[in-house]
């Protein structure tokens, strides 16, 4: 009798974590628990629909037929292990910092004291970037929706949000400048700069070509190895130095802060690159092939972008360009890739 109850009760496994982890050999981190294996479409017919519907055709053609080969895309981990909770906390801190900057410089009447040269620089190199950041936002969202695993997709989600952060901060600064300097073309002139200024065109050209790059692996190369890092190295990292020299202290500090987001993007990109080349030498060849096809656009961005930034008071154009090229190389070279023109 005493064993009856025990026998009637089916023995249930006590699970410690998702069975999807298999034999992990350790406790998964909170980040892993909240990110693991959430893409249900990684199967021969991705969506639970007829094989010829739009969603299935698109995933088959642009995701499942890519040339990169990886045994398990969900082996990737974001080195920053960003979760929703950590993201909003981290970015709230960053926004609090920027808010503090805005208040401090407002008290000091910073914008009213900007020189002619400073104002020209802001109108040329800072306020038009809302278009650039919007392009990056769209491209990041595309990387999310076609990503072959949820760890990757989640990195792209937060990157998309980072881009909107930048768009809104630029809009904020643009409006402040417009109000302090109403006779100038702040808020109204940026589209023409973005569409027509010769030194902006390589940037826009790369953005538009990246937008029509739909195969996920090529889109990754275009966005994460060329367009976004170069644009950010130029218009955040290098720009911050030049802005500071020109007396645009507030915008230099904001650019520095936005550059942190870009560095986070480069960190997960670097880790993914390493995973790809470790998965097989043919992956490096594939990446190099795509990268090589993008190098001319990247070089054109660096040439024109560095000219855009160079000013009489600051560093020479060649110096800026060299700094960006060095940054570009340090992003791709650890994976054995080269950005030297063939």
């Amino acid at each position: 009798m005493s064993t009856e109850q025990g026998a009637a009760k089916p023995r249930t496994r006590k699970l410690r974590t998702w069975t999807a982890f298999g034999e992990l050999g350790r406790r998964p981190t909170e980040y892993e628990v909240l990110t693991h294996g959430m893409n249900h479409t990684l199967r021969p017919t991705p969506l639970e629909l007829g094989p010829e519907v739009l969603g299935n055709r698109w995933l088959r053609e642009h995701r499942d037929a890519i040339s990169l080969r990886v045994p398990d895309w969900d082996a990737f981990r974001d080195p920053d292990a960003v979760t929703y909770g950590s993201y909003v906390a981290m970015q709230d801190d960053q926004e609090t910092y920027v808010e503090g900057l805005l208040e401090r410089f407002d008290r000091e009447d910073h914008d009213a004291g900007l020189s002619e040269e400073a104002l020209q620089r802001l109108a040329l190199c800072v306020t038009p970037t809302r278009y650039l950041a919007h392009a990056q936002q769209m491209l990041s969202a595309y990387l999310q929706q076609l990503a072959p695993g949820s760890y990757l997709a989640t990195c792209a989600t937060f990157q998309t949000a980072d881009q909107l952060r930048r768009v809104q901060l630029v809009a904020y600064r643009t409006t402040q400048l417009q109000r302090t300097h109403p006779s100038r073309a702040f808020a109204t002139g940026e589209r023409a700069v973005w569409e027509q200024h010769p030194l902006w065109q390589p940037m826009r050209e790369a953005a538009e070509h990246a937008l029509i790059t739909y195969d996920w692996d090529q889109a990754f190369v275009a966005t994460q190895l060329v367009f976004k890092p170069l644009a950010d190295m130029l218009l955040l990292q290098q720009s911050a130095l030049e802005l500071s020299t020109a007396g645009c202290t507030l915008d230099a500090l904001i650019a520095d802060n936005l550059w942190r987001d870009s560095e986070r993007s480069q960190r997960w990109t670097t880790v993914l690159l390493r995973m790809l080349v470790e998965a097989g030498p043919e992956n490096r060849e594939v990446l190099q092939r795509y990268l090589t096809s993008w190098v001319p656009r990247g070089q054109a961005m660096v040439e024109a972008g560095s000219q855009l930034l160079a000013a009489s008071t600051g560093r020479a154009q060649t110096q800026i360009a060299e700094a960006v090229r060095a940054g570009w190389r340090s992003l791709v070279e650890p994976a054995g890739l080269s950005v030297d023109p063939v």
Partner: peptide
């Protein structure tokens, strides 16, 4: 201004 982001694409269709 933060939503005034459309431009005329000219390098691609």
């Amino acid at each position: 201004i933060s939503r005034d982001l459309d431009w005329t694409l000219s390098y691609v269709d």
